[in-house]
Design a protein around this nucleic acid. Sequence first.
DNA 1: AACGTTATGGGACTTATGTCCCATAACGAC
DNA 2: GTCGTTATGGGACATAAGTCCCATAACGTT
Lengths: 199, 199
Amino acid sequence: MSTVYEEFGRTRQKARTRSQLIAATRALIAAGTASPTVEQAAEAASVSRTTAYRYFPSQKALLIAAHPEIQTSSLLPDEPGDDPVTRLALAIEKFVDLVLESEGQQRTMLRLSLESDATDLPLRQGRAIGWFVDALAPLEPRLGKADIYRLAVAIRSAVGIESLVWLTDIAGLSREEAARQLRWTAQAMLAHALAEGLP
Amino acid sequence: MSTVYEEFGRTRQKARTRSQLIAATRALIAAGTASPTVEQAAEAASVSRTTAYRYFPSQKALLIAAHPEIQTSSLLPDEPGDDPVTRLALAIEKFVDLVLESEGQQRTMLRLSLESDATDLPLRQGRAIGWFVDALAPLEPRLGKADIYRLAVAIRSAVGIESLVWLTDIAGLSREEAARQLRWTAQAMLAHALAEGLP
DNA sequence: AACGTTATGGGACTTATGTCCCATAACGAC
DNA sequence: GTCGTTATGGGACATAAGTCCCATAACGTT
C-alpha cells in the first residue's frame, strides 16, 4: 500500500479506462444515440460491462460524466461597453446559441435532473448565473451586488433550456421563434428591474 | 359484430377496468410512489398485468392518464376588473398556487414529456395559455388577438413548473421565494410589452 | 340453456438496469 | 523471474418494461 504505487502506478490505467468510457459515451451521443446503454458504452470503449459499472454506479452517472462542460467565465466579446442592456443582449444571444447548439444534451441533462434518484451528482450547477452577473456588472452602483445576483437568477430561470423546450414542444414555436422570444424575455426583465426594481 | 353489442354491452366493463386502473395509479401516487410500476398499479386495481398493458401501452401512458386535469376556463375571480395588470396578477397568483399544490405531479409530467418515446400522447397541452389570454383580454383593442396570444405564450414559458424547478433545485430558492420571483417575472413581461411592444 | 364474442389471466420470452462473486490477467516492487 | 496487489472479465442473479400466445372466464344474444 505504498503511496507511490497508488498515485503513479495503476492510477494511470484507471484514469485511462475512465476517459475511454466517457469518450465512447460522447461518441455514441454525438452519433445520435440519445441515451446509450451502459453495455453499448462499454463495448464502444472496449471494456466489459462490469468494469463500466465499477467506474460509474449507474447509467445516469455515466451520462452526466459524459456531459461536456462549457469552460467560459464570460459570454461577452472583448469590448462589450458599459451599457447593461447591450451587454445583456450580447450575453443572452450567445447563451441562447449555446443552448441551441447542444439542445439534445441539454434536454438529456434536464431529464436526468428530474429523475429523483437520490444519486445527486454535481449536476446542473447553474453556470449561467455567473455569466449574467458578469453582463449586468455595470449596474452595481445602482442595484448592488445582491440584486444583480437576484436579477441574473431570475433571468436565467426564464430563458433556459426549460423554457425553450416548452416554447417548441408545447407552444409549437420554431427554434428561431423560440430563441427570439427568450431574448425578448430577458430584455423585458432587465427593463422592468431598471424601471421598478426587484420584488 | 352488432353495434348495440359494442356500444352498450362490454363497453361498460372496459370503462370500469380502465377507471379502476387509473384510480389505483392515482392512489399509489398519492400514497407516495412517484412512478408506480405497471404491476403495482395492476395489482392495486385487482387486474392482471397483461390486462393493464391492454389498456395502456406503456407505463408512461398509464401515468399520463392518471394525471388529474384541471378543468377551469379561467383563473380569475368573479369581478376581476378591466386592468390587465391586476388581472394578470390575479391569474398568475392562482396559477402559481396550482403549480405549487401539485408540484410532484407536475414534475412527473415534465419528466415524462422529456422522454423521447415517439409515443406522444395528449400530453401537456398548454392550458395555461388560455388562462393568460383570458387575463389579458382587455388589451385586445390595444394589442390585437395575435399579440395577446403571443404574450400569453411568452409569459407561460417563463413562469411554469420548469422555471420553478430551476429556481428551487439549481438556484436554491425556497418555494415561496421562487413563487414570488415567478409573479414578478410575469409582471415584468406585461409591463415591457405595454411599453415597447412584442418582438 | 346454448352459442359466439370479448375481456381477462397466466406464462414464456426479450432487453436493460444494477448487483454480486470468483477467476484471471496486468502491473509494480523486489 | 517471483510475489502480491489491482484492474478486469465473465457469469449468475434480481427486477421492471414490454411483447406475444393461448386458454378460459364473463358476458350479451338468441
